[in-house]
Computed example of a mutant assay.
Amino acid sequence: MNDGRLTRCGMLIGALAAASIVLTGCAGNALSAPTPTASPSPSPAGVSGTGPTGFPGVDFPLEVGARSVSVEFACGSGLYTVELSDSMMLGQAPLSGECAASPVTLTWPITERTTETLSVTVAEGVDWTAIPTFSDEDFETDAALAADCERFGVIYSAFMNADQGYTFYGELDAGQWAARVDQASIELGALAGSAQSELRESFEQLVPLVSARADQVGEILSPDMQAPISAITGACAANQTPLILQGEFGG
């Protein structure tokens, strides 16, 4: 499978996990871009619009010499996803959540490859604003969190491939599925015991949930896991070390 496609898929997982746990199909399917319907209003104070922008989004001028940017983002209702430049190209992550009464602060690194575009995904008719504050300081990545995100991405990929290989592609039998799940479960337990970041609690929550489904052949991933996985993917995205799933099946 194309690495670039997997990378974007992994990032979108981080962005959309708050909405749904149905992530196993992502490694084999690209999400279509929303229809461009926004009417952006660029200004020195930021940009605003109504509805989704599509990709690559609207003009979003960067300050010369800036090495990071914090965007104060507000939207009317529903879920949002905001992406600076091209996350797949940069190895960064879109950021997502639920529109609230108060604006949220979304932060990204700026590199020499960052392009001056911002894409926003919200429901049709939803108003939004994005006001940047630029800094000449580097974006601070938490190294311990980054390491835990990388390890969990491998484990989650193993669970995903076990389910897909058995249920969707018929490439694995029940014994092969069980062997893969057992090995990934051992690795998850080890991660829960050794994690040095804020994700440790979420890993610990996942361990019994996975164990309880060890006899559900082809269905180790379930909606019960939505809350801890959403917390993990959200934290990894905010750290700009997004989960990247490696799909084994599907061509």
Rank of each mutant, 00 (worst) to 15 (best):
M1A: 02
R5L: 15
R5S: 15
R8H: 09
M11H: 04
M11S: 09
M11D: 11
I13Y: 07
L16H: 11
A18I: 02
A19C: 04
S20F: 10
S20C: 06
I21A: 15
L23M: 14
T24K: 05
G25W: 08
G28A: 07
G28L: 02
A30M: 15
L31H: 02
A33M: 03
P42F: 08
P44L: 06
A45R: 13
V47D: 00
G51C: 04
G51A: 04
G51Y: 00
G54S: 10
G57D: 11
V58R: 03
L62F: 05
G65L: 11
A66T: 05
R67F: 09
S68K: 08
S70N: 12
A74T: 02
A74Y: 00
S85F: 04
S85P: 07
S85R: 04
M89Q: 11
L90C: 01
A93D: 05
G97E: 13
A100F: 07
S102A: 15
T107R: 15
P109S: 12
I110L: 14
R113L: 09
R113E: 14
T117M: 12
V120M: 12
V122R: 07
A123G: 14
A123V: 03
E124G: 03
F134H: 07
S135Q: 07
D138A: 08
T141A: 13
C149A: 15
F152V: 00
I155V: 11
A158V: 04
F159D: 12
N161I: 02
G165N: 02
E171A: 13
L172D: 04
W177Q: 01
A178E: 12
S185N: 10
S185P: 06
S194R: 12
S197G: 13
E198Q: 15
S202P: 02
E204F: 07
L206Q: 11
L206C: 11
L206D: 09
P208D: 11
L209A: 06
L209I: 14
A212E: 09
G218T: 12
G218K: 10
I220Q: 08
I220N: 07
S222P: 03
P223A: 02
D224F: 04
D224Y: 06
M225N: 01
I229Q: 14
I229E: 14
I229W: 06
A231V: 09
T233G: 11
A237W: 08
A237S: 15
T241Q: 11
P242A: 01
F249C: 03
G251H: 09
